[in-house]
Simulated assay, not measured.
Amino acid sequence: MTHVIITGGSSGIGLALARIYASRGARISLLARTLPTLEAAHSELTKSGNADAIRIESADVADEGQTAAAISRCEEAFGPCDILITCAGIVEPGLFEVVSPDAFERQLQTNLFGSIHAVRVVYAGMKQRRAGRVMLVSSGAGLIGIYGYTAYSASKFALHGFAEALRSEARPHGVKISVCFPPDTETPQFTRELEHRPPEAAVIMGRVAPWSSDAVAGRIARAIDRGDFEVFFGWTLWALGRFGSTVKPFLNWWFDRAILRISRSR
């Protein structure tokens, strides 16, 4: 039976993915920081499936020790990880000079190193078995820098680079590495994010309606099934991913003009 480990699996995209794999009869391990939210996710998933096939672990992925211990317990209970999906992430918008050093580092530690910590625990076993799939969840903000998102964009750009390099290392050993770039997605975190999003950022991010977490999760699951490396959502992000060096100069010119108009109107 397939063992799927999902960090950030208690809500949003992670929980939507858990529903998909639960419907397929997989063993599912969910990691997240907040135990009550994890318990609510466990309760939902077990209503339509086998409670013995769902495991939850409260851990902060930014902490390497917590992550390693939690994933090790999951593998002891359900066997080696077949699919790892790193959904855990945080976003705290704000201008660079306003965001505190702690908040900046927290986003890097969670979004980038949180994924790396999780991969490190399962990667050696996957190589040894010559099988395994890893899906790293980046963001559209990992394809183009967003006003007011210096920390978040930095973490998500870096995650893309990590995925590209690891893909080259993992491929000869039968391990498939993927990275996806979701757009704005209807999640509890997105609701909180909008309260702090600078109006200038809406020029870039607010012109496309957010996707549902179920729609994003469905595309991610299909990409894992196919073994796709990069997963884009909508033609805009696809164009950025495929032709970024060509289209970004024009986009940045247009964004700069729009941001300047907003600044002058204040």
Rank of each mutant, 00 (worst) to 15 (best):
L30F: 12
P198A: 06
T110C: 13
N111V: 12
P188H: 05
R24C: 05
S139D: 11
L45N: 11
S245D: 12
E193M: 10
W235K: 12
V91M: 13
G12A: 04
I56Y: 04
A32M: 05
G174Q: 00
F243Q: 10
R197H: 00
I262T: 03
A88G: 07
R27Y: 12
C81S: 12
P172F: 02
E75F: 02
E195W: 00
A26W: 09
P183I: 07
G142I: 08
S265C: 01
K176M: 12
L95K: 13
R264C: 03
S155E: 10
E230L: 07
W254F: 12
I6A: 09
G145E: 06
A239F: 10
F157C: 07
R19S: 10
T150L: 04
S10H: 08
A221L: 11
G9W: 03
V4Q: 08
I262Y: 00
F78W: 06
N50S: 15
R222K: 14
G89S: 11
E39I: 02
N252G: 00
P188N: 05
F232L: 08
I146P: 00
I71H: 03
D102K: 14
A170D: 01
A118R: 06
G174K: 00
D228H: 14
Q66T: 02
T150E: 07
G65V: 10
E39T: 13
L166P: 07
S155N: 10
I144D: 02
T187K: 04
C81F: 05
F96P: 00
M135E: 11
T246Y: 13
A223Q: 10
F113I: 06
C74S: 15
D184P: 08
T67N: 02
G142E: 09
G206E: 01
S153I: 06
I146Q: 05
E193A: 08
L45E: 12
V247N: 10
A18L: 07
I90A: 09
I5C: 11
A88C: 09
A223I: 08
W254S: 14
R120H: 13
W253Q: 14
P172M: 03
T187F: 02
M135T: 05
S155I: 09
